[in-house]
Design a protein around this nucleic acid. Structure first.
Length: 572
RNA sequence: CGGGGCGUAGCGCAGCCUGGAUAGCGCACCUGCCUUGGGCGCAGGGGGUCGGAGGUUCAAAUCCUCUCGCCCCGACCA
């Protein structure tokens, strides 16, 4: 491809709107342009990288036995009403109406559509398992789109859906997909971690997120420093290091004046007690009304866990007015004594004795409270946020915190959709059974962006070979058409093209400085620099973008050297 | 949803507070000369009516009101 014929509008200056590096570089290097908030156009280079990503995904999905389909982006409301998600999905679902006033939505995901597709076709266990995937544009009306391709409102996603006859089959499919994902991200040259995204209550983990490790990541991960345990902080568990003394005597409860002592820090300092002896009482608003949630002073509530345990859609901390009304005290003095709200408490509070809580009166706390006698026995659950440094739930080594970009997610759905949408088949006994489903997503654009987060330097992008828009860039440093430099550039270009390499020839009548700067910015892995100085000695330069290393090679041997560089970089 | 910021030439910005004459600057673009191994140099030139609507005023990019869009931060751990 000739540079002069490609639309590559590079930017010298850093765009002010771009916060993260991948976003800045994709704009500067002319890969994408923003149309409106969270919605981007892909320019020629951007499309090339995106297509490479897609090709890798296709190869590995096909290899793993999945089949490609293409499902509609525009979907009728009826399907979503049937699954219950028309109401549940909320404001992120982009709803549209046609001229007949019929409701539709732009698909944020396709469980309803595939399930509908297959329920009409699959009758017998003999037709299972079946595993379909597509690469489609998804629409989600994100509250706050940001970071360029990382969190958009319209974005490319590979989504796959598997249908098995039973749990065992579904487990096998899940495993296959898990392995396919490992291959995909490895081929992209990414440093990633597969982390548990489910608490795994029913023996084993059935959901994994694939996280690309990056400072700018939106997700927090806790990973064990010794074993393979790794989990999204939202789901992570850990062992509580604090042990209450089992021999401690129960004491008599007592009201204490704690003027203006509201926070955990203030109260514990005021009473000279460790924060483990304080129990925080948080009032949450839920679908079923307000509830009180108790955690130890040194712990924090994990709202993701809470959401699940309470089985609620809405979950918000109550505002000051509500807290005042429900507890009779201003914020900071809530307690569970005599509180007529559903009580939930974290497991770490189980053995605690003689603890401290707010008194439900301004400037008052109770001390020496005990379960049963003073405070009604709450419903126990894992409600706390695991923290860095705490012991791993599997092997007790300390957990370490990372940040990650979620690029893939494999999830076992079970019969959630097949049941609500009646996707059934007949087994050998002629019994009607629900299909067991799984779903598997990869953010295509996001993965490309994540690759840049991990592969860049001060001059620009440093593409992994597998995702680079071109493998080789040829840069002649003088351009007068008849020059020897240009003849050689042209010759090497043609030879590489013929050998099947993806080559870009910078034939622009620009000064070398401009060509070099653009070359570094767009990040093509191998650059061949051809100039009169070298040619005088019969050599050209082969430069690797990542290392900056230059090999001076005889002009007839360039192709061999490049063959070696490219194939080594694609060797996975 | 709350708070903050911004919208002036293709891009990046100044001017606005303290209204006043042809609305500036850098980059990019066009022409010519020059130059050619890391975003040259010189000279000349084209392009905006100041996000939109309304208002105040003799006079509005500038003041006021409304509106649209974009960016950032936050969304309460008592």
């Amino acid at each position: 491809m000739l540079y002069s014929q490609l639309y590559i509008p590079t930017l010298k200056e850093k765009p002010t709107e771009a916060e993260v590096i991948s976003h800045q570089l994709m704009l500067r290097a002319g890969f994408i342009r923003k149309l409106t908030s969270g919605i981007y156009s892909f320019l020629p280079l951007g499309v090339r990288s995106l297509r490479k990503m897609e090709a890798i995904i296709r190869e590995e999905m096909n290899r793993a036995g999945a089949q490609e389909v293409l499902l509609p982006a525009l979907q009728p409301a009826e399907l979503w009403q049937e699954s219950g998600r028309w109401e549940k999905y909320g404001k992120e679902l982009i709803r549209v109406r046609d001229r007949h006033n019929r409701d539709y939505c732009l698909g944020p995901t396709h469980e309803e559509v595939v399930t509908d597709l297959l329920r009409h076709e699959i009758r017998s266990y003999r037709q299972l398992p079946i595993n379909l995937y597509q690469i489609q544009t998804k629409f989600r009306d994100e509250i706050r789109p940001r970071f360029g391709l990382m969190r958009g409102r319209e974005f490319g996603m590979k989504d796959g859906y598997s249908f098995d006859r039973d749990e065992e089959g579904a487990g096998k499919t899940y495993q296959k997909m898990f392995e396919a994902y490992q291959r995909i991200f490895t081929r992209c040259g990414l440093q990633f971690k597969a982390v548990e995204a489910d608490s795994g209550a029913i023996g084993g983990s059935y959901s994994h997120e694939f996280m690309v490790l990056a400072e700018s990541g939106e997700d927090a991960i806790l990973a064990c420093t010794a074993c393979s345990y790794a989990a999204n902080v939202e789901r992570a568990e850990s062992i509580d290091r604090f042990q209450a003394d089992p021999k401690e005597e129960r004491k008599e409860r007592q009201k204490i004046s704690t003027p203006a002592q509201k926070t955990v820090e203030e109260v514990t300092r005021f009473l000279s007690i460790p924060s483990q002896r304080l129990v925080k009482t948080l009032i949450y608003q839920t679908d079923q009304g307000p509830v009180a949630v108790l955690v130890r002073g040194d712990q924090e509530v994990n709202e993701t866990k809470l959401l699940k345990v309470l089985d609620t859609q809405e979950l918000n901390l109550a505002d000051e007015v509500t807290v005042q009304k429900l507890t009779g005290a201003p914020v900071g003095f809530a307690g569970a004594v005599g509180l007529s709200l559903p009580l939930w408490a974290d497991h770490t509070l189980t053995g605690l004795k003689n603890f401290v809580m707010g008194g439900n009166e301004a400037d008052i706390h109770w001390i020496n409270l005990n379960w049963g006698t003073d405070v009604a026995i709450p419903r126990w659950a894992d409600l706390r946020l695991a923290q860095e440094g705490e012991p791993c739930p599997k092997c007790q080594s300390p957990l370490k915190a990372f940040r990650g970009i979620e690029v893939g997610h494999v999830f076992k759905l079970g019969d959630k959709y097949s049941r609500s949408m009646k996707a059934t088949f007949l087994d050998e006994q002629g019994q009607e059974q629900f299909m067991i489903m799984g779903c598997y997503g990869i953010g295509v654009g996001r993965t490309v962006a994540a690759a840049i987060e991990q592969n860049h330097d001060k001059d620009g992008i440093v593409w992994p070979m597998a995702l680079a828009p071109f493998q080789v860039l040829i840069t002649p440093v003088e351009w007068s058409s008849g020059s020897e430099t240009n003849q050689w550039a042209q010759a090497i270009y043609e030879e590489l093209e013929n050998k099947g390499f993806e080559v870009l020839l910078d034939d622009r009548p620009e000064r070398p400085g401009i060509k070099f700067k653009d070359a570094d910015l767009i990040g093509i892995p191998v650059r061949v620099t051809i100039g009169p100085k070298g040619l005088a000695e019969g050599i050209v330069e082969v430069r690797e973008r990542r290392t900056g290393q230059i090999q001076k090679v005889l002009k007839d041997q360039v192709v061999l050297i490049i063959q070696k560089l490219v194939s080594e970089a694609l060797n996975y």
